[in-house]
Amino acid sequence: MSAVDLSVELCGLGLKNPVMVASGIFGYGTEYADLVDVSSLGALVTKAVTLEPREGNPPPRLCETPAAMLNAIGLQNPGVEVFVTEKLPALRDFGVPIIVNVAGATLEDYVAVARRLAETEGLAALELNVSCPNVKAGGLHCGVSPDLTAELVATVKAACPLPLITKLSPNVTDIASIARAAVEAGSDALSLINTLLGMAIDVERQAPVLANVTGGLSGPAIRPVAVRMVWEVARAVPVPIIGMGGIMTARDALEFLLAGATAVAIGTANFVNPDTAAEVLKGLEDYCRRHEVARLSDLIGAAHQY
């Protein structure tokens, strides 16, 4: 059989392959450069960028739970200006599409970051992090409300011509309704899932393990929840989906593709095995050969025809 076509089309971005690294995992690219061939990634999503520098949450910020981990990093980042002038040049040198994860506390914050990124060269897309506590919504994150999500998406879309990907929070009752609101407001693609809200208690100290009390759960334990949500969202909206949540192997990635994701992102697995993205890609190629699939994109959503 001839070479498998691994490329996918994601809201105007022709990706050479569908395997990306998720936001918050790879820093700004350089930390893993010794261990990983960054240039072979389908795309790279940065850690969240905010308007002003953020110092993040006090430690302890992470702990392990069964087949998963909790984190409460708290958006620590140097702010959009330092990101653009100091971090981005090295990132661009990898020659992979750069997707910037954008976060904020107010609508104005998001718009200001989006404007700054709009005038910056060499970016592929924005990923809108709607899971940040929102000042106007009384600390609730926009991602829980279809209306707030729609308002945020429409406003950022108007501020920046780059393709807009909305990253959905799983901490909602009906993720399909949030997905619909985001797409109707102009989101070009969706990524899901962000971390699940969780908590661990140190029984010896009789206190929460994380200084922030709660944290975001990620890793293989959350995969079935993520697959279910991708499945539901794929049925609800026509735009491409970047699926993530606990992907460790090509088999895991295939679940997401078959559930309707156009691309996948590797998160926590990178900490365990920095080579995960490359191994997943290799595994996807092998799978296509084994199943005589000429184009990987033919697998997208295939399980919906059951």
Partner: peptide, 13 residues
């Protein structure tokens, strides 16, 4: 406690 161990995740600060 560490996540990445290489400076990327900001978990060990």
């Amino acid at each position: 406690w560490m996540g990445c161990g290489v400076g990327a995740c900001l978990g060990c600060v």
